[in-house]
Design a protein around this nucleic acid. Structure first.
Lengths: 140, 140
DNA sequence: CGAAACACCGACCGACGCTCGGTTTTCAGG
DNA sequence: CCTGAAAACCGAGCGTCGGTCGGTGTTTCG
């Protein structure tokens, strides 16, 4: 049975590889970069050829994670999603894989994860939550 | 450069496959099952041979997601993690891949995800959070 | 003892991400 | 306009992973 993964977004994108991630990081650090520029920007032990970066960018482009425009004879790339947006999408993908219908398990597992986090962070989460609830009250 | 995925950086388990997930679901639905029993329990369009289920269980066992004991000539398997625990671990893996140092982006992207959730759920999250904060206060 | 049930081993396949070298295209400076 | 550098483009190969079996050995039980 063919493992039907391909379907661009909306579905669970197949978890980024190491280089793909590094490229995205570089792109978040400084938008509007060429493949060459991106190659230079890669962390020390991550050196590879320009071709490699290019094909990685090609993959990223197919996954609709970067946007590109031709400028002169070269492409200039930018991230299409903010880091937090990508994180949200990835999170959503994982959650969708394991949800039960009820939201409770999601919540408790998140709070479980938050268990390893200091109390300040818990407070901040609380803040965000309250803010969200307020906004919601205004919207509706 | 050899793709050092095997040990996965830190401990991000490489996202479960379709069958692996199905087996885990079956195992959560009813613990203590044999490979054969698991095979029967799989959803309709998921039919495959016993060997396939066995090697999937083997993989799951290597990933330490199931526990097994020999009972007679056959293994009996159980999940080593609750669904919510696995979810938490998976979530943690994704987060670790994209964290910035600051926790804020994590939190806001989670709350972003929660944006599509009704207010009741938000309230329940709040509850869980408060409870957690209390427990924490008692423990320390 | 013999058959059934199961574990165990090895093989193959397709999908992915990474890696690169060679070829073609494109642009800009002389 | 011509040429050389830079980049895109193409295709190949490699390793890993999940899924899929079939064959072979081993254990159990009637």
């Amino acid at each position: 049975m063919t493992n039907k993964k391909g379907g661009s977004l909306s579905n669970t994108l197949p978890q980024l590889g190491e280089l793909e991630l590094a490229v995205m990081q570089a792109l978040w650090a400084r938008p509007e970069q060429s493949a060459n520029s991106l190659l230079q920007a890669l962390p020390q032990p991550r050196k590879c050829s320009l071709s490699t970066v290019q094909s990685t960018l090609e993959r990223l482009h197919r996954k609709e994670l970067v946007h590109r425009t031709k400028q002169g004879h070269a492409y200039v790339y930018s991230a299409r999603l903010e880091r937090s947006q990508l994180l949200g999408r990835l999170l959503g993908g994982v959650i969708r894989q394991l949800h039960t219908g009820s939201l409770d398990p999601i919540l408790s597992s998140f709070v479980d994860f938050a268990d390893r986090i200091d109390e300040d962070t818990l407070d901040r989460l609380d803040e965000l939550l309250q803010k969200r609830k307020l906004e919601r009250r205004v919207d509706n």
